[in-house]
Design a protein around this nucleic acid. Structure first.
Lengths: 100, 100
DNA sequence: ACTAAATATTCATATATTTGCATCTGTTAA
DNA sequence: TTAACAGATGCAAATATATGAATATTTAGT
């Protein structure tokens, strides 16, 4: 027996956990670099952002876990990319809201 | 002496803190109730969501603090409303991304 | 099989967030 | 000026998150 409120609560949880995944300066920076369907490896991102390899991997893992990114392994590299292109909207929206 | 990277880092920080403010199930629920320019009091929200008055006030304080909501006092009541209408985009975007 | 490169995981520590009770402040009406 | 209502704040305990050093895993080349 499932009721509407439970479904709604689950949706809210899911949305929140997705947003929480994005809500970090480095992870927003990662999304910016992946806009437009770009695919980057862990090493590329860790060099672009100037943060530790393991920290980078942690962040990417979180984003993948929460359904923000997808990962595809190709040989020694793992390419990460946006799961939903529309997620760029969120970054754009933030960009507009933080102009003042 | 300010450099581009610092500005950029500040923007990222700001964007992240705004997003972090939104990234909570109850706070997303609050935003949903405020879509379309609606204004609601603390009591109305605390009754709509079925959570404690003080918890509600804390959540609203966070959202106001991080620039997501505005507050206007009218007599005994404080009305809260969206600071930027476009922020509804984020909620809509999440709705679409959590459909699967 | 051995080595090196790329990535992932484990673990510990530091830091931040969430919640609600209790309490305080501000506002209106009697 | 007091009572009652609406909202904000201080505090503490529980929980969650962030970071990076060390280590493990996966893969390719020799």
């Amino acid at each position: 027996m499932i009721n509407i409120q439970e479904i709604d609560a689950d949706r809210l949880e899911m949305a929140a956990s997705m947003l929480k995944a994005i809500a970090h300066p480095m992870r927003i920076a990662i999304l910016k670099h992946l806009e437009g369907g770009k695919k980057l490896t862990v090493t590329e991102i860790h060099e672009l952002l100037g943060i530790e390899q393991s920290t980078t991997s942690h962040h990417l893992g979180i984003l993948k876990d929460k359904g923000v990114l997808c990962a595809r392994r190709e040989g020694k590299n793992t390419y990460y990319y946006l799961k939903h292109d529309i997620l760029s909207q969120i970054v754009d929206c933030l960009q507009r809201c933080t102009c003042e």
